[in-house]
């Protein structure tokens, strides 16, 4: 019963409004700590010098590019199965956030690849499958924009999002399945991280900060989406007043 109550657009709007600062402030603190330890405290890498510091923005954005997609597909499934309005709104709200972090992962990877590999871009499995992810996000944004009934648009986007899920394991395992310039996993390994704690700590701080950031801006976006979709209902008119 309570879950159902919070799934109603109105209660979601109120609850999310109260939750956002509790995500935003820890995010700011973790990010400040991550930047300080990553840019100032952590020593230069013995092979890559200071260039490796790009990892502290590259890995969190690459992580978010996958995490946001999984969240989007999850809410897409929930929206299709239960017709929950908030889940439908969340599906389309995820796409621009995911697209922006996929773009950031590709851009920072390129800026890291140039000095280390000697090239901005290679058409290998990891980079190509990540580029496909960007196009999936852009496709969902375009599809949402092309259908004027928001609920129908959400359902169409949900189907595309779920079909596109197939790209996620391809991205993750691409560095094992194919020969690639991209390095293998250094943190999420069965035998534990192969990265020194002085570099692992800022990396985890930044990953946590980016994840909280996503949750906060997602709630902000879903609140907007809900306000727009429910604009003819009385509670939205009360919010406006």
């Amino acid at each position: 019963m309570t879950l159902r109550r919070y799934a109603s657009p109105r209660h979601f709007h109120d609850l999310a409004g109260r939750l956002i600062p509790w995500l935003g402030w820890p995010c700011a603190v973790l990010m400040a700590a991550g930047l300080w330890t990553g840019l100032v405290i952590a020593p230069p890498d013995y092979q890559q010098g200071d260039a490796y510091r790009i990892i502290f923005v590259h890995v969190p954005s690459a992580w978010l590019s996958l995490f946001v997609y999984a969240a989007m597909a999850g809410s897409a499934a929930a929206g299709l199965i239960w017709r929950t309005k908030v889940a439908e709104a969340a599906t389309v709200a995820c796409a621009p956030v995911g697209a922006s972090f996929t773009f950031l992962a590709l851009l920072t990877g390129s800026l890291w690849g140039k000095p280390m590999w000697g090239t901005w871009w290679v058409w290998d499995a990891r980079l190509t499958s990540e580029l496909v992810l960007l196009f999936l996000y852009l496709g969902i944004i375009a599809l949402n924009g092309a259908i004027s009934d928001p609920r129908k648009a959400s359902r169409a986007c949900a189907i595309l999002a779920i079909v596109g899920l197939v790209d996620l394991p391809i991205i993750h395992f691409s560095v094992e399945w194919w020969n690639t310039l991209h390095q293998g996993a250094t943190v999420f390994r069965l035998d534990g991280p192969s990265i020194h704690p002085s570099m692992l700590v800022p990396l985890l701080l930044m990953v946590a900060a980016f994840t909280l950031f996503f949750l906060a801006v997602l709630l902000m976006r879903v609140r907007c989406e809900v306000l727009h979709r429910e604009r003819h209902s009385r509670w939205v008119r009360e919010v406006r007043a």
């Binding site: 010098g49 260039a51 790009i54 920072t108």
Partner: peptide, 22 residues
């Protein structure tokens, strides 16, 4: 940044822009 200033700071600058726009 040990000679890598352009690459490092462009990355962090882009991250700042993406976070800000979001």
């Amino acid at each position: 940044m040990g000679g890598y200033g352009f690459y490092v700071w462009t990355s962090y600058g882009a991250a700042l822009v993406v976070l800000g726009l979001n």
